[in-house]
Amino acid sequence: MPQLSDKQIHGILFDKDGTLFDFHRTWHSVITKAAAMASGGDERLGRILLEAGGFDPATCRFQADSVIAAGHAGELAELWRGLGAVLPLDDLQGRLDALFAEEALASAVPVTDLRPLFARLTRLGLRLGIATNDSEASASATVERYALKEFVGFVAGYDSGYGVKPGPGMALAFCEAVNLPPHHVAVVGDSGHDMAMGRSAEVRLCVGVLTGAGTMASLASQADVVLQDITGLLELLD
């Protein structure tokens, strides 16, 4: 495994779901409830919505880089509305955001004890942030629930005004917020969108993790290194 000195990396920007939290275990029940809401309880339509979004009800697995796994609520609402979702587009997006913020936080399964890990990374002199294609409110609620506020200097969602992944906006905003050039920053995530964000922002290191919908096959060609989970960052950073 390649190792990097702290002279090279001074900041880490984390994705949220699939990176800090096990995506499959966290989002199975959440997305099932979302589809039931969007379909008005029509089971057949609900299954169509789930499969189109990238979730296989038979295996309870999410497809890598699918709309559900890597997109934001607006993209999902537009997709589902086009397939027959019963709610108007704006209403559907708003209800998806609200449901995701409440249900995903309630069912979240952290991949490790986050506070000790973030504390250790901070003691190494690293500045930390979270950038998600979920809403900013959901990300901020996560920071509060897991007592990470003292370690996290930047939080952004798809609705924060920096653009959405795979664009570079959130990564560049993190660099500005913590006063670091991109070549001293690492982006850590579970999807191609995360890796593309890092690449387009020209960060020093793009780290893939296998706790989301992404697989070794889907991440290997886009990431500089792929880890089983975020605990491997400690070894990577030596």
Rank of each mutant, 00 (worst) to 15 (best):
V185E: 00
M197E: 02
C60W: 08
G18N: 12
G212E: 04
S218H: 02
G167S: 15
S191T: 12
A137N: 06
A52F: 13
T231A: 01
E150G: 10
V188P: 00
S138T: 14
A173I: 07
V226Q: 07
M37W: 10
S39N: 07
I48H: 09
F62I: 01
A177H: 12
E136N: 06
D91E: 15
L92M: 02
V187F: 10
A64C: 07
T112K: 12
F118H: 09
S140D: 08
D97V: 03
R25V: 12
A85I: 04
E176W: 10
E136G: 07
S29E: 11
M197T: 03
A52T: 09
A141D: 06
F151P: 06
R95M: 11
G198T: 05
S29F: 08
L89H: 14
G189Y: 03
S107N: 14
G169Y: 07
L13N: 03
L89K: 13
S135I: 06
T112R: 10
D22P: 00
Q222R: 15
R44W: 14
D224I: 14
L227E: 13
L50A: 01
A201T: 04
A139P: 02
D134W: 07
W80V: 07
E144L: 13
Q63N: 02
L114S: 05
G18M: 09
R199F: 11
T32I: 15
P166N: 08
G84W: 03
R25P: 13
S221D: 09
P2W: 13
V225L: 10
L50T: 01
R44D: 14
F23E: 12
T26I: 08
N179D: 13
E150A: 10
L210R: 01
E78H: 12
A201E: 07
C206W: 02
Q93D: 10
A141Q: 05
T19G: 00
I68E: 03
D56L: 03
H24T: 15
A35G: 11
M197V: 05
V164D: 02
L234W: 11
G125P: 00
H28N: 15
T215Y: 00
A186T: 00
V67Y: 07
F118K: 10
R199S: 11
G192P: 03
G46T: 15
L180M: 04
A220S: 13
G208S: 09
T122V: 01
G94D: 10
L148F: 09
Q93C: 10
T142M: 05
G71L: 04
I68H: 06
G208C: 11
V188Q: 04
H24Y: 12
L89W: 13
F14N: 07
